[in-house]
Amino acid sequence: MITKTRNQKAWFLVLPVILLVAFNAIIPLMTVVNYSVQETFGDNLFFWEGVRWFEEVLHSPRFHEALVRQLTFTGIILLIEIPLGVMIALQMPRSGPWVSVCLVLMALPLLIPWNVVGAMWNIFALPDIGLLGRVLNATGLDYNFTRDPLAAWVTVILMDVWHWTSLVVLLAYAGLSSIPDAYYQAARIDGASRWAIFRYIQLPKMKRVLTIAVLLRFMDSFMIYTEPFVLTGGGPGNATTFLSIDLVKTALGQFDLGPAAAMSLIYFLIILLLSWLFYTLTMRNEGH
């Protein structure tokens, strides 16, 4: 770890970043805060409403349902993607000409625009002309993600696993590559089991990258909008209407600026709070 010198002039080096991010973050955020405490009837007439919208959103069953759906979705994909990604990374050979090719192929889904991911899965899963839909129906299942909420959930989750597991694989693989060979040789001499090697050598070395993986997957899955919107449009009914989809429906569809702004702030605070909690808890464990 580098010892840092105290130097207030460093502020000048950070200034461009602060200006650019502040322009993009603070002005829009203040706009949202502004809307969240006022009522408008158009014509730029605004009336002070105080915390009314916040109370309304916090008590609205619609928000609760979207939040529960969001938490369920994020929970499920974290439970699938993190272990699956670690497992695949463990099975990857550590060197060789094919490793680069594998990594490139695995990274491919990460670089496809999100609406294309949604559209791709749409035509992949359509019951009549999609490969997945056709195969599932051929096995005797009655699979139609546009009609059946359960099928829609399975499809959205499968799509997210397809889309993002590679990020976990890449990070875990990076963590594993940083382990010197000497560690494995020592373990072999001690006659350590496969599990012991994983538990006491590989897992600790991966801990830092896995923290990053969980944080990124948590944040991004909590903000998910485009992919499920293109795939299912939030349906059938409201079955896959996650928080962002619900928010855009309120803000742009119904033009309820006040409630939408209040919901935005609550939504943002939930992400901040959960990220902070997870981060503090992992770091505290590190201390012991």
Partner: peptide, 28 residues
């Protein structure tokens, strides 16, 4: 390389912007 007034808070504030859902900011 340097420690300066508010460096840790600034770093955290920067990262919080990575957590802002685009849906929240679309209209503003």
């Amino acid at each position: 390389r340097y420690r300066f007034l508010g460096d840790k808070h600034l770093f955290f504030w920067l990262l919080t912007n990575r957590m802002a859902p685009p849906a929240v900011f679309a209209l503003p």
